[in-house]
Amino acid sequence: MKLAIFLKAAVFIIGMSAFLQVYSVQAVLPVLMADLRATEVQAGLAVGATVLGVALMSPFMGMLSDAFGRKIFIVASLLYLSLPTALLAFSADIHQMIALRFLQGLAVPGITVVLIAYIGEEFEAGQVARLMAVYVSGTVLGGFLGRFLLGYLSEWAGWRGAFAVMAALSLACALFVWTQLPKSRRFTAKPDFQTAFATLKSHLHNRYVVSASLLGMCVLCSLVGCFTYINLHLADAPYRMGSSELADIFAVYLIGMVITPLSARLMARFGSVKTIVLAVCLSMAGVLMTLFAPIAAIIAGLVLVSSGVFVTQAATINYISAHVKQGRSLASGLYYMAYYSGGTLGAWLCGLAYAGAAWPGVAAVLLAVQALALLVVLKKMKTV
């Protein structure tokens, strides 16, 4: 059965909208530090707060949507996301911004986790694969576009005006999804929280879930730490980049639209664990390259870091799917909880490192976290 173009557009926009706001503030951190008189650590927490909100809600949103429905959660979450985004334009200090960024993060699992459940219920296997590819492409574009737009808009309209435009964009996306995403036809309410909590307890003792979650925590810790504080490094001497130039740097994220499909070939040939080891080593090489002075070397290093992360995430999700047969959606929720908690940890740890030793200090923390990731893979994860 051919998938309607408007359905694909709705799924793509949902993926894009979910990640449009999550990391967008990274492109304007130097400006925010100056205007709101924030420290490096506080600026990092403006990124980490949203990631923390995502982490805390991820395991529970699936259970809530199992009880109450799919489309209503997706649309409501998109609508809600536009509210704290608009209020960011009125932030009086960095503390208000951190709080509003946290509220943004609470909306994201209602979009991502619930959409995956919706697609799995409503479509056949071949259609699911195609729609998931559309969704992943949307998330990659959203991660790039959020930073890109906010960086350029802040130069044209100030960062407050930029947040107002971003809020309007989120609202427009919500209205499009409301009109174009088909209603659930196969959803059956399952408000069985007792069974869900029993499954949760089981997963917390499952070494496959625990090891994959630890790995995910290390992965996003290094990604958020790297892409948050590389902005401060490049805004400082000798580079002196402005917001729009920093926004351009995030074009390296678009490599994910190419790398993610290629990761399937690597897993087919080498297995998930060997693929993860290769990808983590690739990211470590990228971090080392950022220590060189030429901007071309730094950009090449960022390409390697992000590519390694995309491959690692795809292989880790495949690892969970191969080893966890019961309660997969909850297992995925736990993985994403650890994954995004790592992002918050990365924003905080690397903020301390940058305040004490600038970019070389951040690079040292990133390499230590990636070394820990390798240790988890080699000691705790079964080779498949």
Rank of each mutant, 00 (worst) to 15 (best):
A107R: 06
F60L: 12
Q194H: 14
I74M: 04
Y208P: 00
V273K: 13
V113I: 14
Q180P: 02
L345T: 06
A107E: 08
V280S: 01
G110I: 06
Y152W: 13
V209C: 06
M1T: 13
R70E: 01
I98G: 00
V114T: 10
G126F: 00
I13A: 07
S222P: 08
K183R: 15
P261M: 09
I111W: 02
P238D: 09
S24V: 06
D192H: 10
S222I: 01
A133K: 03
I5E: 12
S263P: 07
G143A: 10
T50S: 15
D66T: 03
Y339Q: 05
L330A: 09
E40V: 13
G308E: 05
V47N: 06
P261W: 08
V11Q: 01
A364N: 11
I249T: 09
K201H: 10
R101H: 07
F102D: 05
S272L: 04
V252K: 00
S332F: 07
R265Y: 13
A237N: 11
S263W: 02
N206W: 08
L278F: 13
R70D: 00
D248H: 15
A347L: 07
G308N: 07
S332K: 04
W359H: 08
L145I: 10
S321H: 14
V210F: 12
A9M: 14
R160T: 11
F73Y: 09
H203D: 06
A34Q: 14
I119V: 15
V376L: 10
I74H: 01
Q42V: 11
R70Q: 03
L200K: 02
F6P: 04
I299K: 07
V377W: 00
A86Y: 12
M267E: 11
V114C: 11
A264C: 05
L32D: 04
F6C: 11
V384T: 14
V165G: 02
S211K: 01
Q313I: 08
L87W: 09
M97A: 13
Q127A: 14
L181V: 09
Y135G: 03
R240G: 12
W159H: 08
G120N: 12
A296L: 13
L345Q: 04
Y229R: 06
K2Q: 13
A67I: 10
H203T: 06
A353G: 05
L45T: 10
L254E: 05
R207Q: 13
L215I: 05
P294M: 07
L304E: 01
V25G: 01
T260G: 06
T112Y: 11
L81M: 15
A125C: 03
L372I: 14
A296T: 14
V287E: 00
A125R: 15
T50V: 13
E245L: 12
Y336T: 10
W359T: 09
L87H: 07
A34S: 14
I13V: 14
L204V: 12
Y354P: 01
R207K: 15
I14D: 01
M1K: 12
G333K: 05
I255L: 15
S65K: 05
L304A: 11
I320F: 09
A174N: 10
I317H: 07
I72H: 03
I295N: 02
G15H: 08
V209T: 11
A358I: 04
